[in-house]
Computed example of a mutant assay.
Amino acid sequence: MIFKKGELFNGPGGLSLGAKKAKVVAPNGEVYTIQHQWSNDFDINACKTYGLNICGDEDHPSVHYGPVERLPIGERNKLGDIDCFVFGFPCNDYSNVGEKKGLNGTFGPLYSYGVKVLKEYKPKFFVAENVGGLQSANEGKAFIQILKELMQPSGDVEYEVIPHLYKFEEYGIPQARHRIIIVGIRKDLADKGIVYRVPAPTTPNSADYRTSSDAILNPAIPDDAPNHEKTTHRQNVVDMLNHIPPGENAWYIGIPEELQLNVRGARLSSIYKRLDPNKPAYTVTGSGGGGTHMYHWEEPRALTNRERARLQTFPDDFVFVGSKEAVRKQVGMAVPPEGAKIVFEAILKSFAGIEYNYVEPTAKLQISRLLV
């Protein structure tokens, strides 16, 4: 049983790598997998990274570079039919860091192209992903509106949707990364008993969380690993980092006055923040100026892109294409592949009729409001 997958806003391929690695064997011996069919993104470097690692060719014709508005969604002869659909729609207008314009922003409405795919292809299931701030954008109205359109994208197709705030550190990911993932099962299939449930956390206790140091050191990253270039810092930055203990940031009280930052206004906690080697990393981000690159707990330096990729659970042979800053952006925008794999395997188990441990979704209240 192979589900052919379409994808919008593919990024470097975190969701797709998770889907590619997901595999379930049903009691009757039938193998359930997910196979790439086509994808799209506006970032040329992300498209090349995706093509290289997911398709084996950085210029693979099934990876369509360009604005989503120009993708021929209605022309199946150009894209190919699909059984499932994935889209991590842009989070810029929903992020807690920023103005949170939601549906009123430039990027907020782009989810609607995912709705167009559901109307046109009517896939058996879909997976949508966004930041946790989606729940509160536009006073919560944006989330309700998006769920409503995903539940019934057109008059002749409906979906049972299961939104949940996944805390990835509870699933063995060495990073405190919290994301809304919405899984939809086509209603005619759900009525026949194919029901997705939120997979239970694999490491629910904080004592069992995978730490940042374990992810980066075990095994050691080879010196010639791709995307592993170190940053050369100014001496004053090195001196300041040497006064910041693990887990602390640029506002640590023990930094000598001559090395302290002269910053007015908000003091973001992630500025020159060093990892705590005994805890999961804080959230890997893809943008930001000086002091936002994540910092080693022991060495006075920023993490390399390969170390950030380790925190995101990308394997060392996953090569990111582009400049150092372009790679940083890709790593930060991605969904951790090992987290995505858990979600996709739960979906495949649902279709294969295999039971698995589950928890109640966090967004039951929003769903109940829509069903009234």
Rank of each mutant, 00 (worst) to 15 (best):
L261V: 08
H36W: 05
T211I: 07
E158Y: 03
N305Y: 09
A19L: 11
T292R: 13
E257T: 10
R306I: 13
S136F: 08
P300F: 02
Y272N: 00
N104I: 00
V195L: 15
I181Q: 10
L79C: 09
S350T: 11
N77Q: 11
I342V: 15
F351A: 05
R301S: 13
G114T: 07
F89Y: 14
G288I: 06
D41N: 15
P219R: 01
F314T: 04
V237H: 09
L103I: 07
S213H: 08
G56M: 09
P201R: 00
P361F: 06
N218H: 09
G140V: 06
F344N: 00
Q260L: 06
Q135P: 00
I253A: 15
P61S: 10
G289K: 02
G247Y: 00
F344W: 02
P245R: 00
C47Q: 03
I253P: 00
P27E: 09
K5S: 10
I82M: 04
K4H: 13
N10Y: 00
L147H: 06
L268H: 13
I221Q: 08
I347A: 10
V237T: 12
E360G: 06
G14A: 06
G265P: 07
E169W: 02
V284P: 07
A190Y: 14
N45A: 12
M151F: 02
P153C: 12
C91Q: 08
G291F: 01
Y50Q: 11
D156Y: 09
N305G: 06
G80M: 01
I354H: 09
E257S: 14
Y166T: 07
P109K: 12
G56W: 10
A200F: 01
H228N: 15
I162D: 05
P27K: 14
E355G: 14
I244C: 03
D43P: 09
L348P: 03
N130G: 07
I180A: 05
V63S: 13
A281T: 09
E298P: 02
S136M: 11
N45L: 03
T285Q: 08
N40D: 05
L52C: 01
R186E: 10
Q135N: 07
T203P: 01
N130E: 06
E75P: 00
T203M: 13
Q312P: 05
V321D: 01
P72G: 07
S213D: 12
T33K: 13
G29Y: 12
K364P: 00
P153D: 15
F89A: 04
V284S: 03
A176D: 13
